[in-house]
């Protein structure tokens, strides 16, 4: 699958999840996601099979709090806990991955998905080592927040030759500041 096709699949999948489960509008952003020095969250989920890789959604903590509050149907005045924010970001990654998987399963019949994880810090980015292809998409949420969806992947043959295993999929955090 070409990078451009993956971008379309990512966008459609994320739109479905945000509109159906989070009740927030999502659109492709004109500007790239640039959190500068703001603390960010990265929800990730890895997959193996016909291709191996990692899907991620990165956004500022402020954006993640709004997403979590909407997912949980909370009032604007209510405080959402860090645990709920992290959990929500993991679920967003999980659901977007599920939606991506259902869209590509005719082409890639064997894809096993892991349990999602979330990291916080600054200047977070996905990493899958050498020979990985990366596609990233800046998205706008409710016109208020910019975030980034990305997929890193390697096709199965390449992955097998390189000895890729799920455990090698990692998340690099430059200047991490864990909560």
């Amino acid at each position: 699958m070409e990078t451009e096709q993956f971008n379309d699949v990512l966008l459609e999948s994320a739109k479905e999840v945000f509109e159906t489960m989070i009740f927030m509008e999502l659109a492709k952003a004109d500007e790239p996601f640039d959190p500068k020095d703001d603390d960010s969250l990265l929800g990730t989920i890895t997959f193996t099979g016909d291709m191996d890789g990692c899907l991620a959604i990165g956004c500022t903590v402020d954006c993640a709090k709004n997403v979590a509050a909407n997912m949980l149907g909370m009032d604007p005045d209510e405080q959402v806990s860090s645990a709920d924010v992290n959990d929500a970001m993991g679920e967003v990654a999980n659901m977007v991955m599920g939606s991506v998987k259902s869209r590509i399963q005719e082409q890639y019949t064997n894809i096993q998905v892991s349990i999602p994880s979330v990291v916080s810090g600054r200047k977070l980015e996905n990493s899958l080592g050498e020979k990985a292809r990366r596609t990233a998409l800046a998205i706008n949420i409710e016109g208020d927040f910019t975030a980034e969806l990305s997929i890193l992947y390697r096709m199965h043959e390449t992955a097998t030759q390189a000895g890729l295993a799920n455990k090698e999929v990692s998340v690099n955090a430059a200047d991490p500041s864990t909560n």
Binding site: M21, A68, M71, L72, G73, A83, D84, D87, A88, G90, E91, N94, I115
Partner: peptide, 8 residues
């Protein structure tokens, strides 16, 4: 396993 998903 997700408390958020249980609430949703």
């Amino acid at each position: 396993d997700s408390a958020t998903m249980r609430k949703i």
